[in-house]
Design a protein around this nucleic acid. Sequence first.
DNA 1: TTGCAATGAGAACGATCGTTCTCTACTATG
DNA 2: CATAGTAGAGAACGATCGTTCTCATTGCAA
Lengths: 187, 187
Amino acid sequence: MDISEVRERIVAAADELYNAKGIQAVGMDELRSVAGVSLKKLYAEFPSKSSIVMAVLEHRHKSWTEGLDATVQQAGGPRERLLAIFDYLAGWFCQDSFRGCGFINSFAELGAISPDVAEYARKHKESFQEYVARLAGEAGAPGYLAPQLAILAEGAQTTAAIAGTSDAAGQARQAAAVLIDAALTAD
Amino acid sequence: MDISEVRERIVAAADELYNAKGIQAVGMDELRSVAGVSLKKLYAEFPSKSSIVMAVLEHRHKSWTEGLDATVQQAGGPRERLLAIFDYLAGWFCQDSFRGCGFINSFAELGAISPDVAEYARKHKESFQEYVARLAGEAGAPGYLAPQLAILAEGAQTTAAIAGTSDAAGQARQAAAVLIDAALTAD
DNA sequence: TTGCAATGAGAACGATCGTTCTCTACTATG
DNA sequence: CATAGTAGAGAACGATCGTTCTCATTGCAA
């Protein structure tokens, strides 16, 4: 078993478990069991639980961002690319494993007692805002549109997570279309 | 010291502490110390920590809903009442103690392992959605407007919490105005 | 075969948590 | 004054957590 494969298995198992049950509710022994590695290997790979948490956040950021960009790239024009953000959300919300944005959740759970977690969550959201701003810029929209769309996307995530209804993405998409068209015709 | 005053002090202290540090990060001893009651009184009033959590959620729901309604009632017309939602959010975000919606946070922290917490968070959001729907109905707006505004409000909360910028309320308010006007002229 | 380094399973440890129990001191009524 | 009852401070308890340690076992090189 390769050493980097061990890392991947640990991070993948931690990602699933932390998403499903919350970070603090998952002990190292349960993680060891699900990942299928010994406790010694686990601590040889990561110095502490908090370092695993940070690795999970990095992994989440990478896969989420890549998934979003893949969906956006498939869309036709600049306007459709902005709307594709919400198509990506819709597909995400439909997954059985969806239990809200992992960054919002980890921020809520650990943000107040772990500056690292708080900062990483902030950077993830900042990166998303910049991504939306770039798409909006390519569409020729005024600067105020991107924060509005980002807020819609955030709201769709928490609404879908708590209410358990996945149509929040569709409602957010319709609202986004209105905001986009209003912004594009306002010049 | 009246017995109901003891309850209030416990719930008030728990509300502050849970909001500031997260629920799981606050032990019963710290709560006892801040509330200024003995551990015996604490357990005479509440059978367990989870019952305190539920009492805090009830208290939060009541004060948040009342505060929102008070702000809304001060607004002039139906359209202004819808926008007043975001004025209430703006004032909330500016408070030093603001650290995100307590229901989103408690859902993220305990929703997966406590059905009671998950259900209460869902009911709180449901109640907010119904409130927005009532205001939108009084404004003569079509049915799709209220979920859109609710999503905007949710998104403003998490954006303000994580990014730490309180202007998410203003951005959401501007987006809400666009959505409201578009919905009201769409008939 | 023999010795050695590495591995795995799980016990052990210290800390902390929620909860209960003990014991002391005070209060109030006869 | 005496005594029964109450309340407070904090020790104690069992459970669980993150982390480390032990030790038997394995695979491999000489």
